[in-house]
Simulated assay, not measured.
Amino acid sequence: MKKLIVACGSGVATSQTVASKVERLLKEAGCSFEIEAVDMKSLEQHIKSADAYISIVKAKKDYGVPVFNGVAFLTGMGQKQELEKIIAFLND
């Protein structure tokens, strides 16, 4: 099962909101996955066990995992396309 990490500045409001929305949408799509919301300070520690990163705030370095646009799930703009990318990644 693949693990997704969602990170924002504090790891509380925004990342939790995006993680909850992505979780609901992926479950509706029948995907199997784990998802965790974290703060940017602990991203480097958590990303070691993750298969992909849903970015709300752009990371300052490349962690070697696929990165998806989390802002799309906040605004709704481009959400369908990002969701399709995540589903394709999870089903790969």
Results as ranks from 00 to 15, higher is better:
M1Y: 07
M1R: 14
K2P: 03
I5S: 02
V6H: 05
A7F: 00
A7R: 07
C8P: 00
G9P: 01
G9V: 03
G11M: 01
V12H: 13
V12M: 11
A13Q: 04
A13I: 14
T14E: 10
T14A: 12
Q16R: 11
T17E: 05
T17V: 12
A19I: 00
A19N: 13
A19D: 01
A19V: 15
V22G: 03
V22N: 04
R24E: 11
L25M: 14
L26C: 12
K27L: 02
K27I: 00
E28A: 09
A29P: 10
G30N: 04
C31F: 03
E34I: 08
I35H: 05
E36L: 05
E36K: 15
E36P: 01
V38N: 02
L43P: 08
L43H: 07
L43K: 02
H46Y: 14
K48M: 05
K48R: 15
S49I: 02
S49A: 14
A50C: 15
D51K: 07
D51L: 05
Y53I: 14
I56E: 03
I56F: 02
V57F: 06
A59K: 01
K60Y: 12
K60Q: 15
K60D: 15
K61T: 14
K61I: 13
D62P: 13
D62W: 14
P66M: 06
V67Y: 08
V67D: 07
F68N: 08
F68H: 00
V71F: 09
A72E: 09
L74A: 03
L74K: 06
L74T: 10
G76S: 06
M77P: 00
G78A: 11
G78C: 10
G78L: 06
G78S: 14
Q79F: 04
K80W: 02
K80Q: 10
L83A: 03
E84N: 14
K85D: 02
I87V: 13
I87W: 00
A88L: 05
A88K: 15
N91K: 12
N91C: 00
D92R: 13
